[in-house]
């Protein structure tokens, strides 16, 4: 059975020691706590969580960049701490939202060089660079110095760098961060295609976009403050909210509102508040429709005016709200 496990984490934890200046004492920050994961070969697995949840920390540990403080992690059967060389031969990683790369080299040269670091045959490397750059849409920029590329195009170059080595396990840390809608869609389509081309491949991606996790992933782990709160297929996660009634209420609340009063109403599973200058939105998960009248009564007690009220199907966002009491973007 071991062969079917691509990534395994057991009681994985990471503590950062931080201090702001020399005089200060070290403070401990727990970025990951007791994480257990079992990702199968062939899976497209998503880590969904807000900023600071620990997603990047987990990826760094799995890609041998960072040692865990506790626990064990294996990738394709190799312990990341004991045999990092074996792991490195079989993986690759791309972080989104950054402009890494040798600016003075052309796109082709950058990619070519990284292919060399993996011992990829010259002709194979060239073919792959050509093919991947066509798919991602930068084939006309291959001979441009990468410093002359826009941030988005540089990110696309980076994405190619990840796929170029045809890794057994690929790690993508927020691959669509900073890309426009069209480019994000292209990248997602490409990821799906790459996975369906070959059932032996495994891909772990992190994101804080619900839709991305929902659309792409076979399974999703919801992670917040270093802990995995839930892990299942998107549809199973949403099914946990099948019995509940989910409402989205737009309010006029010029002097704010008291969330705790809403949360204390019996039958309210959890709710999350989004405050914008123009209006206030309340996402609220109720045991069933009958609780709604209580909610409306509470809004009039707090002299809030309801601008719009909508019942909706459960999304991964609601799963997160139920677990954490906040929307992902608002954490």
């Amino acid at each position: 059975m071991k062969n079917y496990v691509a990534i395994e984490a057991r009681n994985l934890g990471r503590i950062y020691k931080i201090r702001n200046n020399r005089k200060e004492k070290f403070k401990e920050l727990s970025a990951l706590e007791n994480v257990n994961l079992n990702i199968k070969k062939g899976e497209l697995f998503g880590l969904l969580g807000p900023n600071g949840a620990g997603k990047t920390t987990l990826i760094k540990i799995l890609t041998t960049l960072l040692s865990p403080t506790t626990g064990i992690a294996t990738v394709v059967g190799f312990d990341v701490e004991k045999s990092p060389e074996e792991v490195r031969k079989r993986i690759n990683m791309v972080s989104g939202g950054e402009t890494s790369g040798y600016g003075l080299l052309t796109v082709r040269e950058n990619l070519w060089m990284f292919a060399q670091f993996y011992g990829i045959d010259g002709k194979v490397a060239n073919d792959r660079i050509k093919k991947l750059s066509e798919i991602v849409g930068i084939s006309d920029r291959l001979n441009t110095k990468s410093s002359d590329l826009s941030t988005g195009l540089r990110q696309k170059m980076n994405i190619i760098r990840g796929f170029l080595t045809d890794p057994q396990v690929l790690f993508l840390d927020e691959p669509t961060l900073g890309l426009d809608v069209g480019a994000s869609r292209d990248v997602r389509t490409f990821i799906k295609g790459w996975m369906s081309d070959n059932g032996e491949r495994t891909l772990l991606l992190t994101t804080h976009y619900m839709v991305e996790a929902d659309e792409l992933c076979d399974r999703v782990a919801i992670i917040n403050q270093g802990k995995v709160l839930a892990c299942d297929t998107p549809s199973n996660l949403k099914r946990t909210l099948q019995k509940e009634a989910i409402f989205n209420i737009n309010l006029h609340a010029p002097s704010g509102l008291d969330m705790d009063k809403f949360k204390k109403i019996t039958g309210v599973k959890n709710c999350a508040l989004t405050q914008k200058p123009e209006n206030t939105t309340l996402d609220i998960i109720l045991e069933d429709d009958s609780v709604l009248s209580e909610i409306i009564a509470e809004t009039s007690r707090q002299t809030l005016r309801i601008l719009r009220l909508e019942k909706r199907e459960p999304s991964l966002e609601d799963v997160f709200i139920k677990l954490v009491g906040q929307k992902i973007e608002e954490v």
């Binding site: 960049l65 690759n92 990683m93 670091f117």
Partner: peptide, 18 residues
């Protein structure tokens, strides 16, 4: 500067040789 050190590290290269 280039922000590539991590990508060099996770590649199967011998770092001293690099």
């Amino acid at each position: 500067h280039y922000r590539t050190l991590k990508y060099i590290y996770i590649a199967p290269v011998n770092i001293p040789l690099y």
